[in-house]
Measured scan of single mutants.
Amino acid sequence: MLDDRARMEAAKKEKVEQILAEFQLQEEDLKKVMRRMQKEMDRGLRLETHEEASVKMLPTYVRSTPEGSEVGDFLSLDLGGTNFRVMLVKVGEGEEGQWSVKTKHQMYSIPEDAMTGTAEMLFDYISECISDFLDKHQMKHKKLPLGFTFSFPVRHEDIDKGILLNWTKGFKASGAEGNNVVGLLRDAIKRRGDFEMDVVAMVNDTVATMISCYYEDHQCEVGMIVGTGCNACYMEEMQNVELVEGDEGRMCVNTEWGAFGDSGELDEFLLEYDRLVDESSANPGQQLYEKLIGGKYMGELVRLVLLRLVDENLLFHGEASEQLRTRGAFETRFVSQVESDTGDRKQIYNILSTLGLRPSTTDCDIVRRACESVSTRAAHMCSAGLAGVINRMRESRSEDVMRITVGVDGSVYKLHPSFKERFHASVRRLTPSCEITFIESEEGSGRGAALVSAVACKKACMLGQ
């Protein structure tokens, strides 16, 4: 009897593995994704193909990295998701002549009506938060230079001027797309009239992360975010950046690689679950690469896999709870928690219980395998993109072996128990001629924006502006 049951459990697990095998990517698959990513990057950089390229390769006008001589107080704003952060950054000489960066910050959550109302409502709310922060720190009387981390696709015309191309991540505030974001912020500050600010720089969160990590390690020339969304930036040779005049030196390019796949480059790798996630998203047909990796989508992918296993009578005796059938019910943090389970399955059992399920031991094991399959594919897909960037940098610099540091931020990278190990191992397999160091950014977005502002202020002083 026991043997029969054991055989049935083994057969069930084997069927589960057959279904989950769809998520496995072979090294040849990853090399294919990497080569296609490089081709799209090239198209994004070139003037004649930029418009139709899915990977936009947006110039950021960040050319210099901090040298350690900029000092002063800077205000930093960070808008990239449902939370908005205001930070005071003091850049100065530390002990023994070292450079020191001290920060104080406060988080504000953005109400739904500000995210989806008008641009005026959104930026009025942001300036209200700045006003509140300055009151708390008794700094209303000071006109501070301000660095703005704005983590949406922007076409820069200068370091302090950028046109919002399109909202992502659930934002829909009308009247912002096609307009200068810094102008919208300046107008809102003017409307309030109770404080003055000098907006000197606007950067993407990947750029802010790279600059913040450069402060720790001067070989950091790539910034990457794996959180709600997924994106990367890197220092490109100016001669390859056709959208900006000049051939000397390097400029940081914001790849906006989340949109890779929007022209069909990933079609052969998309599964039924991916198509369902895409169809029910706020932007169907867009940001397809990001939807395979980002935390906004990972939990939902797992939920759809679990429903398939229920329908195949391989999980929960073929019956799903009402909660499990509800879109968004299986949160991405559950994926991390399930994979963090120590082996007694308590954590998995508790999560499934909150979803109205009474799982068996085998159910718990199957749910864990589903989570591992989805998150491992995410790590491997992400590795193909980064390997594409790094191999490109090595080739354009004609280096036999390139040493490089990548600064990384984002909740999936930082909080998932195995993502970074799987990701690092896969990147290294795909970049055999590179020695890569990964560092995690601390308060990256805010500190990085302030350091970019410090560079901009120093330049302005040198130019006598």
Results as ranks from 00 to 15, higher is better:
residue 246 G to D: 07
residue 264 G to V: 06
residue 215 Y to K: 04
residue 326 T to C: 07
residue 280 S to V: 11
residue 275 R to K: 11
residue 376 T to I: 11
residue 206 T to Y: 00
residue 359 P to C: 14
residue 98 Q to W: 07
residue 244 V to A: 13
residue 54 S to F: 06
residue 361 T to A: 12
residue 118 T to H: 05
residue 57 M to D: 05
residue 249 G to K: 04
residue 135 D to W: 09
residue 316 F to K: 09
residue 418 S to Y: 11
residue 40 E to Y: 02
residue 172 K to E: 05
residue 73 D to G: 06
residue 115 M to E: 07
residue 59 P to W: 01
residue 308 R to S: 13
residue 56 K to W: 03
residue 207 V to F: 01
residue 451 L to N: 00
residue 298 M to T: 15
residue 239 Q to R: 12
residue 391 N to C: 08
residue 256 E to Q: 01
residue 116 T to F: 01
residue 355 L to F: 11
residue 457 C to E: 04
residue 34 M to Q: 09
residue 207 V to W: 07
residue 352 L to C: 06
residue 6 A to V: 11
residue 129 C to K: 08
residue 294 G to Q: 02
residue 121 M to Y: 06
residue 120 E to A: 13
residue 63 R to P: 12
residue 113 D to L: 10
residue 380 H to N: 10
residue 463 L to A: 13
residue 13 K to Q: 07
residue 320 A to M: 14
residue 433 S to I: 08
residue 149 T to Q: 06
residue 347 Q to H: 12
residue 397 R to N: 09
residue 150 F to P: 03
residue 126 I to K: 00
residue 32 K to E: 13
residue 289 Y to G: 04
residue 406 V to M: 08
residue 262 D to I: 06
residue 417 P to W: 08
residue 69 S to D: 12
residue 99 W to Y: 14
residue 352 L to M: 07
residue 127 S to N: 00
residue 214 Y to W: 15
residue 221 E to T: 12
residue 362 T to P: 11
residue 197 M to P: 02
residue 444 G to R: 03
residue 198 D to R: 14
residue 257 W to P: 02
residue 308 R to Y: 09
residue 311 D to Q: 14
residue 261 G to M: 04
residue 464 G to N: 10
residue 15 K to E: 13
residue 308 R to N: 10
residue 109 S to A: 08
residue 148 F to D: 01
residue 401 V to T: 12
residue 449 A to G: 10
residue 463 L to H: 13
residue 412 V to E: 05
residue 263 S to Y: 15
residue 394 R to E: 14
residue 362 T to K: 10
residue 144 L to K: 03
residue 301 L to G: 10
residue 378 A to I: 04
residue 456 A to M: 15
residue 199 V to S: 05
residue 102 K to F: 05
residue 61 Y to V: 04
residue 104 K to N: 07
residue 372 E to W: 08
residue 405 T to G: 15
residue 362 T to R: 12
residue 333 R to N: 15
residue 360 S to V: 11
residue 328 G to P: 11
residue 326 T to K: 13
residue 177 E to C: 00
residue 177 E to K: 08
residue 424 H to Q: 08
residue 422 R to P: 05
residue 124 D to C: 05
residue 57 M to N: 04
residue 364 C to M: 10
residue 235 M to D: 09
residue 100 S to A: 06
residue 159 I to C: 01
residue 389 V to G: 04
residue 41 M to R: 01
residue 101 V to T: 09
residue 124 D to S: 05
residue 274 D to N: 14
residue 220 C to D: 08
residue 198 D to L: 07
residue 192 R to N: 04
residue 356 G to A: 07
residue 243 L to E: 13
residue 331 E to S: 14
residue 425 A to Y: 05
residue 308 R to E: 13
residue 429 R to G: 11
residue 97 G to V: 12
residue 165 L to V: 07
residue 176 A to K: 00
residue 73 D to Q: 15
residue 243 L to R: 03
residue 388 G to T: 07
residue 373 S to N: 15
residue 15 K to C: 09
residue 226 V to S: 04
residue 235 M to S: 09
residue 210 M to N: 04
residue 46 R to P: 00
residue 230 C to G: 05
residue 295 G to Y: 03
residue 339 E to F: 02
residue 420 K to D: 06
residue 96 E to R: 09
residue 436 I to Y: 10
residue 45 L to D: 02
residue 355 L to D: 02
residue 225 I to D: 02
residue 300 E to I: 12
residue 433 S to Q: 08
residue 262 D to T: 10
residue 44 G to L: 04
residue 369 R to W: 10
residue 432 P to R: 10
residue 338 V to R: 04
residue 128 E to F: 12
residue 384 A to H: 02
residue 320 A to P: 15
residue 189 I to P: 00
residue 107 M to Q: 11
residue 351 I to L: 11
residue 364 C to E: 10
residue 116 T to Y: 02
residue 63 R to W: 12
residue 210 M to C: 09
residue 344 D to T: 04
residue 133 F to P: 03
residue 448 G to W: 00
residue 27 E to I: 04
residue 460 A to Y: 15
residue 324 L to Q: 05
residue 102 K to D: 15
residue 106 Q to V: 08
residue 403 R to L: 13
residue 54 S to C: 10
residue 328 G to T: 14
residue 12 K to C: 14
residue 253 V to R: 02
residue 187 D to I: 04
residue 157 E to F: 09
residue 16 V to K: 11
residue 97 G to K: 07
residue 136 K to S: 08
residue 226 V to P: 01
residue 450 A to F: 00
residue 374 V to S: 06
residue 148 F to E: 04
residue 428 R to A: 13
residue 233 C to N: 00
